[in-house]
Simulated scan of single mutants.
Amino acid sequence: MFSWLGRTVSSCLSPLSQYAHMNKDDDEYSGGEDDVLLWSKDLEKHSHGEFSFAVVQANAVLEDQSQVETGRNATFVGVCGNKELSTMANVVSLRRLLHAVRGLARENGEISEDTLRSAFSETENGFLTLVRRAYAIRPVIAAIGSCCLVGVIWKRTLYIANLGDSRAVMGYSDRSNKIVAEQLTKDHNASTEDVRKELRDLHPEDSQIVVMKHGVWRIKGIIQVSRSIGDAYLKRPEYGLDPSFPRFHLPEPLRRPILRADPTIITRNLRPNDKFLIFASDGLWDYVTNQEAVEIVNNNPRVGIARRLLLSAIEKAAKTKRMPYNEIKKLEQGMRRQVHDDITIVVIFIDPETLDSKTSARELSVRGFVDTVGPSNFNFS
C-alpha cells in the first residue's frame, strides 16, 4: 500500500518545474486574453446530471488537488487543499481517499457514513506511517498536512465528509421558486467562534490554544484549521519540531493532540427541489458568499459555470487589491498568491429525472488542472 505513496512523497518533496497543460477556453466571459493559470472543464455528465469544473493556480506550485469520478451509478467529488506548502499531502490524501472509498464500497456493496469515516481513518493512518518513515531524514514532513472534502452521490443519497475549511453548499428552490443556499459542511477554522470555544473547552489549561496573530485567529499561533490529515507535530509528541523550524516549533512539549483527523459527516436524501451542489476550496469563499454563489450558478447557463463562478471570485479579489484582472493574469504563479489563493470549484447539477433512472452516464475520471479525461472505475454494485 505504501510503495506508491512513498514514490509520491519523493516526487512531491522535490522542486516542481513542469506543469500540466491547461484548457484555455475562449468564451464571452474569459476577460479577453486567456488566463494561462486557469483550467476548466465546461460541462460533463455524471450519473445524476451534469458537472462543471474549474481551477486557478496562485501558489508557486498548485496546492489544491481535486478529482471527479463518474461511475455507472455513483459520483465521487474530492477536493484537498487549503494548507500552505502541502501539495504533497494533498496529492497523497486525495488519491488514498478515493482508493479507500472505492475499496470499502466494493467490499461492503454500499456507501455509508462508516465508509467515509473508515476511508479518512485509513488515509490518516497511512500518512502518519509515511511521517514515521521519513521523519529522521526530513523532519519537516511532520508539519505537512491536508484539508479534505469528499462527496459521494449514490442511490438518491448524498454523503459528505469534511476536514478543514473547504465547503459544500447546496442550491435548492424554496416554495416561491427562489434559489436558496444551504451550507452542508462546517468550517473547521479558528476564525469561527464555535471552533475557538471547542478548542478552549478541550484544552482549558492552555491559555494560548488560540491566539490572534496578524489579525487572524490561529491555533497555537501557527495554524488556522482545527482538523486535518497529517500535521503530525500537532498530534503526536514524538514528531515535535525543534527551534530550527521556528514556524512550527511549540515552546512546550505536546501533552495531547491539538488537531483532529475525524471528519464531520452528513447524509442527505436528495429532494426534487435540490438543484445543484457547489464543492469549493476556501479560496472561493474568501470572496463569495454562499448565497452569491448559488445565485451566480442559478442565473447563468450551465456550460462553463464553474469557470464563471471562479472569475467572479477573482474579480472581487482584484477590486480589493485595486488591480485590474488583466494585470493579475500577467502575474506568475507564486506572485499571484498576493492577490488570491488557489481556487477549486466543482458544480454538480442534480436532475430529478435521473435519480431513479437506470441509464448510465459515461464513466469518467477528471483531475483538476490536468487537461485529460480518462476512464473511471468508481463502481461497486
Rank of each mutant, 00 (worst) to 15 (best):
F2Q: 12
W4E: 10
G6I: 08
T8H: 12
T8N: 12
S11E: 08
S11T: 15
S14K: 01
Q18V: 02
Y19D: 15
Y19L: 15
A20Q: 15
N23S: 14
N23E: 14
D27C: 08
Y29N: 10
S30Y: 06
G32S: 09
D34L: 13
L37A: 15
D42V: 13
D42I: 10
V56W: 03
Q57N: 15
A58I: 15
D64W: 00
Q65L: 10
Q65E: 13
Q65D: 15
S66G: 12
E69K: 09
R72I: 14
N73K: 14
F76V: 04
V77N: 14
V79S: 07
C80W: 01
N82I: 03
K83T: 15
K83G: 11
M88E: 12
A89V: 03
R95K: 12
L98C: 04
G103K: 09
G103Q: 10
L104W: 09
A105W: 04
D114F: 10
T115K: 04
S118A: 07
E122Q: 05
E122R: 09
E124A: 07
N125C: 05
G126V: 00
A134S: 14
A136T: 08
I137H: 09
I137E: 14
P139C: 14
S146Q: 00
L149Q: 06
L149Y: 08
G151Q: 01
V152S: 04
L163P: 06
S166D: 06
V169L: 01
G171P: 01
K178G: 05
A181T: 02
E182I: 12
Q183R: 08
L184S: 03
K186P: 06
D187F: 06
N189G: 08
S191N: 11
E193L: 15
D194Q: 13
R196A: 05
L199Y: 06
D201G: 11
D206G: 10
S207D: 14
I209D: 07
K213I: 13
V216R: 08
G221Y: 02
V225A: 00
V225H: 05
L234V: 03
R236K: 09
D242G: 13
S244P: 01
F248I: 01
R256L: 11
I258C: 00
R260V: 14
T264F: 05
I266F: 09
T267C: 10
L270R: 01
L277Q: 02
D282P: 02
L284Q: 00
W285E: 01
T289E: 06
N290F: 03
Q291F: 03
E292N: 04
E295A: 15
E295H: 10
V297M: 08
N298R: 00
N298H: 03
V303G: 08
G304A: 12
I305M: 07
R308V: 04
L309H: 02
I314W: 04
A317T: 00
I328Y: 07
L331E: 06
R336F: 11
R337M: 11
R337V: 12
H340A: 09
H340V: 10
D342C: 12
I343Y: 04
I343D: 02
T344R: 02
T344F: 09
T344V: 11
I345R: 03
I345H: 05
V346A: 09
V346Y: 08
V347D: 06
F349V: 06
I350N: 01
I350R: 02
D351K: 04
T354Y: 10
T354V: 10
D356C: 06
A361T: 13
L364W: 01
F380L: 11
